[in-house]
Amino acid sequence: MIEVLFIPPAATVQDLGRDGYWSQGLGRAGVMDALSHSVANMLLGNDVDAATLEIPLTPARFRFRQAGAFALAGAACGATLAGRPLPRVWAGMADAGDVLELGPMTSGARSYLALPGGIDVPAVLGSRSTQLREGFGGLEGRVLAAGDVLRAASETLPLPPVGLSLTMPALRAAGAAEIELRALPSAEHGDFAPASREAFWTTPYTVSQQSNRQGYRLEGETLAYEASGELRSHGIAPGIVQVPGGGQPIIQLADSATMGGYPKIAAVIEPDLWRIAQARPGDRLRFRQVTLAEAALAARTQQEWLAGIRTQLEGFLTRQRGWL
């Protein structure tokens, strides 16, 4: 059980999202960075869909009311437990009274805090995610505030008395200045001017300050939509890149609306959405066009990576049990 001592009003309880209500106009919600969220859960032996706390703004401070295990993954934010520095990916034990403090983020944009069994909030429509627009799910359908208490869903599993960290995939390729996002051309791709299509796939776009769980507004080469007539509203999904009248793209994300009328130039593939979640205002993104087959392969590769991590963690626990 941990108590929130201080937190900027942006942190929400999330799991992998509330699927299945799109046609009724209810978006997916869920974590922005499913990779860090899943790893934080796996480090505690949780199901990957267990609820974690998504923390997009720091500093934040928590106090453990009783001894217990916890895990952190995501942005590097100078985290400390009882004053001792923690790496950006960490699972370990805290003593009763210990204060967990997250400082300024130096790389990445979101940290995930996991507790044994997941954060204990009721499932609503099959998910524990906070639906901010509709005001339900998660912790009372709202962002966290000082005084809130988060409970672990299961009895504290005593981890071996060894702290754990993990090698994560790099946000950028080695030596690259930009974060590469693989994307598929979307419905109106062909209606953009040839020079705009060329610019979209070859020039970098900067993440603007207008970036949140709903979407990221980007700044870069202006994209000219050439078709005449008004577009009807269509279903949209997290990852869709829309281009409103000004010609600057918007990537729709976890709290995306379910419908939109702006022309869609591309869709970032799901296995790369975590990279957007960890991009900060000022970071530069570059879109790389892939085929549907390449997108499917990327999804499989990411699932296999996660399964491999699960196996390696089981191996670690087996070795530790042998030595205890």
Binding site: L164, S165, T167, Q312, F316
Partner: peptide, 11 residues
């Protein structure tokens, strides 16, 4: 520091 085996790093 860490002693690592694969992706898993023991502290």
């Amino acid at each position: 520091g860490y002693v690592a085996q694969g992706a898993v790093r023991a502290a």
